[in-house]
């Protein structure tokens, strides 16, 4: 198991995990954007693998995926982006986040070693709960990659037991019933479910969905070890007209969230 994920949650601060869709707004800009996120204060990077039918995503990430696919981005090219990123950053963990079919087409046994060689640390497949994909999860383990699973507000205690025993790296808590980017966040409601997760695992807990600025990140970070910011960042990048502008937007946005997280008011 890669130690990078564990270290990212062990830096004495809330782990900030920005999400960007690989290849959006332009495939040639993604690696620079990733470095800029780290410069801005990211601890862990979530790289979205574009899929044509992203059932759990709202319009911002759907459109980012469509644009990336139109520009020819594939799982293969996403791994190339990670390799390139690793030439200048050996420490920041990268999680790939996406859907099952591109991984299945790449090859369930071929993908994990290729991803590990590229420098990927873990995989979160939104449409693959722990009940499914046994062969893939085994191959990920063999390759030293973490299988990261979601826990939702609807997850029962019985399922939570099962997910926590299968989980590696960290547990990703979906902060509300809905799709990415929706405006439904109630940070106080995280206290109870996060406590239920902590009763069952010592893995760190990160929350995502609906966190869109420094204030909401800080509110969520009061309950969790990490926060994921996706649509708000992807939306800002989509409007960038040049590589420099995208890089600046990535760095500045993450820096502003970092500042809010570290200035916890105490």
């Amino acid at each position: 198991m890669s130690g990078r994920i564990g270290k990212a949650f062990n830096r004495g601060r809330t782990c900030l995990a920005p999400f960007v869709t690989a290849g959006d707004p332009h495939p040639d800009w993604t690696v620079d954007i990733l470095h800029a996120l780290v410069e801005g204060g990211a601890d862990l990077l979530e790289l979205g693998v574009p899929f044509s039918d992203p059932m759990a995503d709202g319009p911002v990430i759907q459109r980012a995926s469509e644009r990336a696919i139109e520009r020819g981005v594939t799982l293969e090219s996403v791994l190339d982006m990670v390799s390139e990123f690793r030439r200048h950053d050996a420490d920041t963990p990268i999680i790939l986040m996406g859907y099952m079919n591109p991984v299945e087409r790449f090859g369930e046994t071929r993908f994990p070693p290729a991803a590990a060689a590229a420098g990927v640390d873990g995989l979160l497949l939104v449409d693959c709960p722990p009940e499914e994909g046994a062969a893939l999860h085994g191959a990920l383990r063999d390759a030293g990659l973490a299988s990261i699973f979601l826990v939702a507000p609807t997850t029962t205690d019985a399922r939570l037991d099962q997910i926590c025993s299968a989980a590696q790296g960290f547990v990703y808590y979906v902060s509300f019933k809905g799709i990415t980017g929706a405006d439904r966040l109630d940070a106080a409601a995280l206290a109870e479910p996060v406590a239920r997760i902590r009763e069952r695992t010592t893995l760190p807990v990160a929350a995502g969905f609906g966190i869109n600025d420094g204030d909401s990140a800080r509110a969520v970070g009061a309950f969790t070890d990490g926060v994921v910011i996706g649509s708000a960042l992807v939306g800002r990048l989509a409007e960038a007209g040049s590589r420099d502008e995208a890089v600046a937007r990535a760095r500045d946005f993450v820096a502003s969230v970092r500042e809010s997280l570290d200035n916890d008011g105490s």
């Binding site: 059932m55 759990a56 099952m100 939104v126 449409d127 693959c128 709960p129 009940e131 499914e132 699973f149 979601l150 826990v151 939702a152 507000p153 609807t154 997850t155 029962t156 399922r159 997910i163 979906v174 019933k177 809905g178």
Partner: peptide, 22 residues
């Protein structure tokens, strides 16, 4: 019992829906 017809079928959905399917 888990909805598999040989290698086909199953429940490939996001976690939020797993309880609703149950």
């Amino acid at each position: 019992p888990t909805g598999h017809f040989g290698e086909f079928g199953g429940s490939y959905v996001s976690e939020t829906l797993m309880h609703a399917l149950e």
